[in-house]
Design a protein around this nucleic acid. Structure first.
Length: 385
RNA sequence: GCGGGCGUCGCCAAGUGGUUAAGGCAGCGGCUUGUGGCGCCGCUAUUCGGGGGUUCGACUCCCCUCGCUCGCC
């Protein structure tokens, strides 16, 4: 009794989510989520650092663009260097030199998207390591053990993420499996200094989403995520899912929309009560030579930037915009210079994090609306962006 | 000076008589949403150094010419 009380106390202290401000006419809210490695202000965008590094970006640079939490990936870190190495290094924070919050994805998505699956059943999945072809078994228990060894602040339940399109029966089966696995994940997870988030599945089928959210919420976890989006469906489907699920999500915990990272999707999600995002898009676009400017994408390879000596985005204070011209970035990208990839990735991260901050300010200033589009001249939220 | 070889897109390069002249690089654009710096998709030579000729038909054969290149004197 005493012990459970004490654990409850620790739980509260380590993972307290507080709402600071709410929008009057939407579900948008400003909050903070405490973790053993510091507080996370929400709404917030998390850079993705699959292998324990946001590709091409240093921890110092991440802090300069005000990144607060990053996502690392169980699947990739398990394959290389292996959780033992990370554990022996003192955990992922020490290993990668990042002293702020970290979330680890369970690897469920990668198992289904990246590897050649051999077998999937209620027990778990068996797949070929895409690196060396060796067989790897992953179960909810194993995924939890790996994540406990990695030592992130937030760990994700091991889920089955069905592709798009999938039949109703396929999605329903994936949901059932995800719910059973969630129960096993919770049983297997024993680190009190880590929060575990459950994942809602259900594809584009509203009644399956509803059933999933009910099942996941029944475990009363410190956070909840909407999974199974950004798997190839049109963005209008993402909007529908977010709008449909919003009213079902509990107010007291952070709500995380997995894999989303465009300003439009983020704005609509925040309007429906989402607090957290992660996405590979800003860094992947950066590596492919594309910069996010306002709500546009600029391909810096394009010859129109050859003689353009203006900063990329005059409203941005990132290293790329502060110190360099479009012409220089164009030159770097054209010549496959690593620095170009770094600078554009950095700018794109800065852009989405700045956008998170703009939404926060707009909610606090009570000028957030369903269609939060501060890049538009007639937007009431324009002054925050 | 004599003899041989070669000239096809900015670069490399298929094609040696038959309908719309491969491909690669470069160039011009596009795609990218719980990450392989991976990659994918369009567009880019009405014309084969130039000029004549043979032929129903010529990048392909013949002649002249220009340019490059190798060998011999």
């Amino acid at each position: 009794m005493l012990k459970s009380l004490w654990l409850f106390f620790i739980d509260l202290k380590m993972f307290d989510f507080q709402i600071h401000s709410e929008c009057s006419n939407t579900a948008a809210r400003v909050g903070s989520f405490s973790t053993p490695h510091g507080n996370l202000r929400t709404p917030q965008f998390m850079p993705v650092g699959t292998l324990g590094t946001v590709k091409g970006i240093t921890a110092t640079q991440l802090k300069e663009v005000n990144a607060q939490m990053i996502l690392a990936n169980t699947f990739h870190l398990h394959i290389q260097p292996g959780e033992e190495i990370v554990k022996n290094a003192g955990g992922l924070h020490h290993f990668m030199g990042w002293d702020q919050p970290i979330l680890t994805d369970s690897g469920g998505y990668q198992v289904f998207s990246l590897s050649k699956l051999n077998k999937i059943d209620d027990q778990g999945v068996s797949f070929k390591n895409p690196r060396d072809g060796r067989n790897i078994d992953l179960t909810p228990e194993k995924a939890m053990q790996i994540q406990m060894d990695l030592g992130a602040d937030v760990v994700m339940a091991f889920d089955q993420c069905p592709p798009y399109p999938s039949t109703e029966v396929e999605v329903e089966n994936a949901c059932k499996r995800t719910h059973h696995w969630l129960e096993r994940c919770i049983k297997a997870h024993s680190r009190q200094d880590q929060a575990i988030f459950g994942i809602i599945q259900g594809g584009c089928y509203p009644h399956l989403r509803e059933e999933s959210v009910r099942r996941v919420l029944s475990f009363d976890l410190p956070g909840v995520a909407i999974g199974g989006v950004s798997v190839g469906e049109p963005s209008s489907e993402i909007h529908k899912i977010v709008r449909h699920l919003g009213p079902f999500l509990p107010a007291k915990v952070p709500r995380y929309l997995m894999g989303i990272g465009t300003v439009r999707e983020m704005a609509i999600a925040v309007a429906n009560g989402i607090d957290l995002f992660d996405c590979v898009l800003p860094t992947r676009l950066g590596r492919h030579g594309t910069a996010l400017v306002r709500d546009e994408r600029w391909n810096l390879r394009n010859s129109c930037f050859k003689n353009d000596y203006q900063p990329l985005d005059t409203t941005c204070k990132c290293e790329a915009c502060l110190n360099h011209s479009r012409a220089y970035l164009h030159h770097l990208i054209r010549n496959d210079e690593l620095l170009g990839l770094t600078l554009l990735s950095l700018h794109n991260l800065s852009h989405l994090i700045r956008f998170s901050r703009a939404m926060t300010l707009a909610i606090e200033d009570r000028c957030f609306s369903e269609d939060f589009a501060p890049w538009q001249k007639d937007s009431i939220a324009r002054h925050t962006w």
